[in-house]
Write a protein that binds this DNA or RNA. Sequence first.
DNA 1: ACCCTGACCGCGT
DNA 2: AACGCGGCCAGGG
Length: 105
Amino acid sequence: METFTEKAVAIIKNIPAGRVMTYGQISKLAGSPRGARQVVRILHSMSKKHQLPWHRVVNIKGEIGLKDDEHFSIQKLSLEREGVEFFSSGRIDLSRFQFFPEQEE
DNA sequence: ACCCTGACCGCGT
DNA sequence: AACGCGGCCAGGG
């Protein structure tokens, strides 16, 4: 991997089931502390072609950012099936489920 | 080849 | 607490 995009894609593909990462976290690890938006772009375009676990990416608040109800449900159900628990507010407990590549679990 | 867009984040009003 | 804005990047029309 060399480019920001390639790094980001590699990181996303490296997220284990039952864990989540935030946009900002991914962009930072990929070399751009402020490039969270690029991760959004990558999820949109790359997830179609490549098979990325886009449902394991959430915003820094631990919530699903999608506005589309159907896709929102798909993501939430996918995560719950992997063992990720949500608060009634719809947020994820990042202190328990956020994944840090550095620790390599 | 240019321009718009996008599921964000953090900081300053 | 809410809102606005700038930063970062590249795919697709």
